[in-house]
Design a protein around this nucleic acid. Sequence first.
DNA 1: CGTGTAAGGAATTCTGACACG
DNA 2: CGTGTAAGGAATTCTGACACG
Lengths: 109, 109
Amino acid sequence: MTEEEKSYKAKKVITIGVVSELTGLSERQIRYYEERQLIFPDRSQRGTRKYSFGDVETLMDIANQMEDGVRTFEIRQEMKKKPDQEKLKRSMIKGQLNARFGIQNNMRK
Amino acid sequence: MTEEEKSYKAKKVITIGVVSELTGLSERQIRYYEERQLIFPDRSQRGTRKYSFGDVETLMDIANQMEDGVRTFEIRQEMKKKPDQEKLKRSMIKGQLNARFGIQNNMRK
DNA sequence: CGTGTAAGGAATTCTGACACG
DNA sequence: CGTGTAAGGAATTCTGACACG
């Protein structure tokens, strides 16, 4: 992956309407998750929100957790522990990852 | 680079306003280059144009050529000869495989 | 040829708030 | 808590056209 290609994932260029289409979440939900500090879109000069592909993936992850009844507060805690999902997936064996983070999720239910 | 990451470049999610900011081209110019068949954005359900990062790069390339006095029809001719620089780079690495099976399209939607 | 602009309509986004619970 | 919605304003996007040349 070149530097240029890497930046595609982090560059914030997607408007909220498109993010809504991509994630299936309502704009209301997307804005609320921002209010709860789960995502951090940029703002264009005119003030409209701009999201990256990385943000879209984070939102889909959030959507899955919400379905499982996880609260926004808990999701935020979780994200502090694993700041970069992608790096972890690459460097950790899935078993190790579950051993460390998976159990907590299961125990809550 | 994973399949998912590759798709970032081809996925059409950027509105014309953002493309204008990224390329420095006016919306008028961007629409005109489409009219001249130099770029091919998707359309959202409501009819707004959606561009990919690949389109943005193509537009910057077009902008450079226009500065050099190249006409749109000449640019189009040129593009037919080299359909996609990035795809070429990729296919050169894969060598014989592409020679035999052709370039695979990115999975989208 | 390539691009600016005014025109009018339709769709988007934003914020703060009320509602349910 | 999480999300829907009505509200009003501001900014966006679209198309077809006139202009210059």
